[in-house]
Write a protein that binds this DNA or RNA. Structure first.
Lengths: 286, 286
DNA sequence: AGTATTCTGTAGATATTATTACAGTACGAT
DNA sequence: ATCGTACTGTAATAATATCTACAGAATACT
């Protein structure tokens, strides 16, 4: 069985060979992500302001036997879309926005988070959260050229939630100092997406040799560090940009922060911090 | 007209008063985000392995006149969901995952990005992108306690794409030095979500007084800095966590990076940078 | 302008679907 | 065990949808 083409695409493709009434019809359909096509042929005819035979003729032009046949295809397509955690943008940005970067970007991001979540093993997530919540373990964070921001974001939160969290400097020259401390009671959280950085891999090896665990965040292709990692989270990163998107990675970070927070009852800790911030603010303001 | 309840919720609500066959039916429906309900009553009956009258009886129990009436409701509901750029997760994580943090988080994030994009004015986005692409202007970035990571992420990319980009230190004590340079040819990109930070606001005022522009990224409620900002992007940040989610903000950052990149033809610049990185890597690796 | 061609809709035939009435079945209570 | 109640499906009927045939309208081409 060959893969069926999407009705949406079929319509776009044949747009040129369509007649006026048929275009009125396809406009109504596309306007609505095809949902309008799930009504009865009569109702659809009314809302598109064409006659019912026009609808049947279109269905045949697209290669279907009749209207119910087309309807089945549409229903399947919509069902497939609904299954996705985050559906494509496509029809959302109406009028001028169709080809806007925001529109294309949203579509890609949806796909990325979708696919990333599909692959995500919830048990692994929970175990990783447990590991990172363990107050007997020290945490170290490290990112690459781009992902250092993500590492920092994670660090920023972890540091507030629990003690024993250290962010490694981006410069390898100062790593050795922290490296000394990493043992079997340590966990290194490392971010490495393409282009994978040699220095990170070398550090990972050293760290594992000293008995520490590694939690890795990488892209869909997987960093070489995977072989050293106890937990590995792959996220999709491709977007219509010269740059990769770390949004799916950020999603995981934020979800982990929420989970770790709820595991380590850190209400006291945060309250204390808030106090300190409050005081220092009073101190610094006029 | 009162707002109609969602079919999905109606089903869940009445779950207790449903009979065995009816439950079989609702299981089939919910399993499929209700899409199965858009088939003919006959087909639906087959796939749920109940008789057609059972379907009608369920429709009546839910308060509809008959099957077509229920179908209309379902279609509307699905149409509404399809209109959202990013649909809710809900049904996606089947099995054990329903109440998992990942599931709830994904739903919240969908809503956040959805709403944020709905509000987003594409023209404003384009104008902001143009402003940030203007090589005659210097850019300064600054974030708050949490958002400094976002600022850093943006900085990280901007710095590669174009010259004249500076990240302000998080500590207000060293601001004055950069402040001296900010004039009508400067743009300050500032991130400020709740709890809005007084220091940022004061800086914003000073900066505007000196003639610089401000591009602000804030949350749905809006930072006090809005009054000083030339461009202001509000994003939804609430998630089931003790922390706010900056994912919608990151979305904007990444989209802006893509757009700015494509405007400022920075291929040469990046190639040069890649060279430098390559060399320094060779240098550092044995 | 006239003719050929294509497009589109009307109306009725056909097929399918939704509904109803009723009967059988399962199950719990007395 | 028997009765009663509630559940479920079968089969016939009513309603509706789909499709076909045909004819009028629009368009393109001499």
């Amino acid at each position: 069985m060959g893969k069926k083409p999407l009705v949406k695409d079929q319509i776009r493709e044949k747009q040129d060979e369509l007649t006026a009434a048929e275009r009125r019809l396809t406009a109504t359909l596309l306007d609505d992500s095809l949902v309008a096509g799930l009504q009865s042929i009569t109702k659809l005819a009314e809302s598109a302001e064409v006659s019912t035979p026009t609808i049947i003729r279109l269905a045949r032009k697209l290669g279907y036997q009749g209207f119910p046949d087309l309807q089945d295809a549409i229903r399947e397509e919509i069902a497939a879309q609904m299954k996705e955690p985050l559906a494509k943008l496509e029809t959302a940005e109406l009028s001028a926005g169709k080809d806007h970067i925001i529109s294309r970007f949203a579509e890609a991001v949806s796909r990325n988070i979708n696919r990333s979540l599909e692959r995500l093993d919830l048990e692994e997530f929970d175990k990783a959260a447990a590991l990172l919540s363990d107050l007997n373990r020290r945490l170290y964070l490290l990112g690459g050229r781009i992902t250092r921001s993500n590492a920092h974001y994670f660090f920023n939160h972890l540091q507030i939630i629990r003690p024993g969290v250290t962010q490694l400097d981006f410069s390898p020259s100062v790593w050795p100092q922290s490296l000394l401390d990493m043992d079997e009671n340590s966990t290194l959280i490392v971010f490495d997406i393409r282009r994978y950085e040699k220095e990170l891999e070398r550090l990972a090896k050293l760290v594992v040799d000293q008995g520490a665990n590694i939690v890795l965040f990488t892209d869909q292709w997987g960093s070489p560090i995977e072989r050293y990692a106890t937990f590995c989270f792959r996220s999709m990163v491709e977007v219509p940009s010269s740059w990769d998107s770390t949004l799916a990675i950020n999603f995981l970070i934020e979800a982990l922060v929420a989970e770790i927070q709820s595991r380590s009852d850190s209400a006291d800790r945060i309250a204390a911090l808030e106090d300190m911030i409050g005081e220092s603010r009073i101190f610094r303001s006029n």
